[in-house]
């Protein structure tokens, strides 16, 4: 009984700790382990190769392209989404019927499941019968594109535009959530600070980036972390729409890991990918915190 009382905290935590240990820590450690072997699960042969698979994959241009795709996607998504959300939130920071309707409309994509969103966009972006090309044609945008030498926008079907199309879909899905977070942040900035700034002769633009943005920094930082980590997890869209194509241009880490391990039966390479992904995300998060956390102002 005494043991229980003096170790109560630990004992209460034990179930959760056990869960974390078994389902998170152990698999991660085991992945590390597998990545140093060449393991054929079907025949059962397991040979130790040290960094062999690492060397092989890091020398494979297709694998490097997957990493590049993922990083490019991540940067674009985060930059575009947060920037757009910032301007949208500034615009929506008033109350009127139009603005309230707009807020609802913008947030709706966040509620819809990713698969539905993805399937929908697949059809919208169809070069022949999709809504996007139809509207662009009606608005004459296609003639504008022709000036750049683009005959027809192939969206998801061409290796030059496929990743861009994914970014569009991703931004569309996450814009609402980001906007709302920033909107809430903006509304918690006391109005009198802006009045003080007005008296300090600050123009609207200066008010925006000297006051609004810095005071929004906790929200911005939060969105940065959340967007970065979630963009690294992109899987459904790739799996349902393109399976990494065309020509590997939309293949992203999580999809590559899944496909290599479970469709191509190369579990060792898959583990190498997992380990590298862990390192990349860890590095990204660490640098975010190190570089930016002292720029974040908490009130």
């Amino acid at each position: 009984m005494r043991f229980f009382r003096s170790h109560a905290a630990l004992l209460f935590l034990l179930p959760a700790l056990a869960g974390i240990l078994i389902f998170i820590i152990y698999p991660i450690a085991y992945s590390f382990h597998i990545s140093f072997f060449d393991w054929d699960m079907i025949s059962g042969k397991k040979t130790f190769v040290g960094f062999g698979r690492y060397e092989h994959l890091l020398g494979d241009p297709k694998f490097i392209q997957v990493i590049v795709n993922t990083v490019v996607y991540m940067f674009s998504m985060v930059a575009v989404t947060v920037a757009l959300a910032l301007f949208l939130a500034a615009w929506l920071n008033k109350s009127s019927l139009v603005h309230n309707l707009a807020q609802t409309a913008i947030f709706t994509p966040h509620i819809v499941s990713t698969i539905s969103v993805v399937l929908l966009w697949m059809w919208v972006m169809n070069p022949d019968i999709g809504l996007l090309n139809y509207v662009m044609e009606k608005m004459g945008v296609d003639r504008l594109l022709a000036l750049f030498g683009i005959k027809k926008m192939m969206w998801l079907e061409s290796r030059t535009t496929a990743l861009f199309s994914f970014i569009v879909i991703g931004v569309w899905k996450t814009l609402g959530y980001n906007t709302l977070v920033l909107l809430a942040g903006m509304q918690s900035i006391p109005g009198q600070i802006y009045e003080g700034a007005a008296l300090d002769k600050a123009s609207s633009l200066r008010k925006f980036y000297k006051i609004t943005v810095p005071l929004l920094s906790p929200s911005l930082f939060f969105l940065l972390i959340v967007n970065v980590t979630s963009s690294f997890q992109t899987f459904e869209s790739v799996n349902v729409i393109s399976k990494g194509g065309p020509l590997n241009s939309t293949n992203m880490m999580v999809h590559w890991i899944y496909q290599t391990g479970f469709e191509f039966y190369r579990i060792s390479d898959s583990s190498v990918g997992s380990v590298l992904l862990l390192l990349i995300i860890g590095l990204a998060t660490y640098s975010n915190f190190r570089l930016l956390s002292n720029k974040v102002h908490y009130q």
Binding site: I25, Y26, A29, Y30, F32, H33, S43, G44, K45, K46
Partner: peptide, 15 residues
């Protein structure tokens, strides 16, 4: 953890 993971080696079935 890594030690335990490495121990797994011995449990692999023979080819």
């Amino acid at each position: 953890l890594l030690f335990f993971a490495a121990c797994d080696n011995s449990r692999d079935p023979a080819p």
